[in-house]
Design a protein around this nucleic acid. Structure first.
Lengths: 348, 348
DNA sequence: GTGAAAGCGCTAACAA
DNA sequence: TTGTTAGCGCTTTCAC
């Protein structure tokens, strides 16, 4: 009765069996819809279980089965802007298989991450998903040769045997720039984040490729690296709109914050978006993209989808199917007003 | 050996005991630093455990103890801006007691929430934390009379027996407005969110109280309700700065997004912040507050602290100590540049 | 169709 | 000081 110990507060299978006047084994069979049993007994047991509010103890089940139907998810961005949609997708996918996820926040602290891994190992999770972008490749999880399946999503490790899932940054950039070129923009600039991010390099590669396919040249003076901030977006304009230089008619930004800075800066210079200059962002960070004036056309990395796919892959690994290597999932273009194309359909 | 089943992949206590040449009970004692045992045996067992990479099975431990050392955390804002810091604090507090937290995202869907509760109940969590602000009081969790301890944080229920933890919205508003009044502002406006939020009503009450203590009158024409957006912040200026009306010299905003809209709008009208008008926000949403020009002075709800306190309270409840009712924790003022006061110290 | 019993991995009470 | 054993709540095999 005491609240101190969970023990005794919960109805056990034994209680149900006793009330129904059957053996504990029979009660189990009845509730698991298995084995041979008279309908009458089965129903009686089920009725008793309902009456008592019986709920099987997952701990005991897991102990018996040697499988916990639980996976761990380790995030390194404090479940921020990027991890959260991934987690949502992951949870959704796993919930369908009635698995649950233990979320842990490591905030890029290796020691904290290690502690979480230990704890997950102790909980006998069936697998682990690691998320959280870093500029560089991360070291693989230290699993003490437990052979536990791991999927890295929005995160990449140098272990070639690992399974990594990433958005197709290059493809996303191509999408953005092809959109601009298709709208007739000929002089497209690229204002992006720090060089050390692989995403920056990939997006720039996409930018160049798209320009090339459109028969345009990527002027190196129009490709600027800075940090991921609005302030940088505004600052970059000074170099882009120098007095005696041909100004760009479109700017593809490395993320939405930069794009917002760019749009604000353009407005303050009396340059009209999208009439004079079209702007595309990257991330589809709703709170930012929709606050832009005009609302920002941008690239969505489909992170939720990425999370769902990570779940699917983890399930496969748990089931014994091996696969390794880096996989990239397509991004998509979300059209708002900053390029002048009319939004088709329901992007709010 | 197969990866399909966890069973067999992990080292058990039996394996350790066998290798060390002791009984399984002895091995347990050795590893739990308990009971009477020769140092020699203890060390030998520990050495063997290390060698084999033994890690006790928490499932088995929990089953035995009737306590899982795990709590559930249910968020209703998809672990967004508000839940995440709370979760961080909670996790931190519980990790100190080597408890872990099962995070679930219910996204304000009662059915989904119910499923999560069922699942947590099945996992025999020792308690549950519910988070996620709503405009109105939420119904209490349906726990089937399990007597499981629950703490509502940044969330409030109508059950008077429940333990609820909230930021002191009213006090936060007082802090903000006293700051403005202390800086010599005499005509302070309030641009805030939808009436239906209790937080809006409380913050307005604080606004009025602070003005009254400063000997100022809260002009009803200067108190405007809208939505939580930047657009509303800009729009509100039209009413605040009507041609033949005395303009405010300070604006206390209901959240940081509104404040950002206000600051942008003021700049576009040629009104200087903070020289002409001082602005204070609410939330200390860093990405927004720091992107303002000038950076936004705002109220921090100390959500991480709130989460930590929720953890503490949950622990108490689990230990059998009863407490109920609504508790509010103080907010604090984060000084940046939007009020003209010099930032003292390290708010980046 | 139903009951008895072993066992998942661990802890703790009791024997030796 | 160490070993033996019962049992946490459940599933499953094997008798009856």
């Amino acid at each position: 009765m005491s609240a101190v110990r969970g023990r005794g507060m919960f109805v056990t299978l034994r209680d149900v069996a006793r009330l129904a006047g059957v053996s504990i084994g029979t009660a189990s069979k009845a509730l698991n819809r298995g084995g041979k049993l008279s309908d009458e007994t089965r129903e009686r047991v089920i009725a008793c279980a309902d009456k008592l509010g019986f709920r099987p103890n997952d701990l005991a089940q897991s102990l018996h089965r040697g499988q916990s139907f639980t996976v761990g998810a380790i995030s390194n961005d404090s479940f921020g802007r990027f991890s959260m949609p991934i987690m949502e997708g992951l949870e959704e996918c796993l919930a369908d298989r009635s698995m649950s996820v233990f979320m842990c926040n490591a905030t890029d602290d290796p020691e904290r991450e290690a502690r979480h891994v230990e704890s997950l190992l102790g909980k006998r999770v069936d697998g682990i998903v690691v998320t959280g972008r870093r500029a560089d490749l991360r070291r693989p999880l230290e699993l003490h040769a437990s052979g536990l399946p791991v999927v890295y999503v929005y995160s990449q490790t140098d272990d070639p045997a690992a399974s990594c899932l990433l958005p197709d940054d290059r493809g996303g950039a191509v999408l953005a720039c092809a959109h601009l070129a298709g709208l007739g923009r000929r002089r497209i600039a690229h204002v992006t984040g720090p060089e050390r991010f692989e995403a920056v390099r990939l997006r720039r590669a996409g930018f160049r490729a798209a320009l090339a396919s459109a028969g345009l040249v990527a002027d190196d003076k129009l490709t600027l690296s800075g940090d991921w901030s609005e302030a940088w977006g505004r600052a970059a304009l000074e170099q882009l709109f120098k007095p005696r230089r041909r100004a760009p008619d479109a700017i593809f930004c490395g993320n939405d914050q930069i794009a917002r800075g760019v749009i604000d800066g353009l407005r303050e210079r009396g340059i009209t978006v999208p009439a004079d200059v079209a702007v595309v962002g990257f991330d589809n960070w709703q709170i930012i993209a929709e606050a832009c004036r005009p609302p920002l056309t941008t690239i969505d990395m489909n992170l939720k989808q990425l999370g769902r796919e990570a779940g699917r892959r983890l399930i496969e690994l748990i089931a014994g199917k091996k696969h390794a290597g880096v996989h990239r999932l397509p991004c998509s273009l979300v059209v708002r007003a900053s390029c002048g194309a009319l939004p088709h359909g329901g992007n709010s």
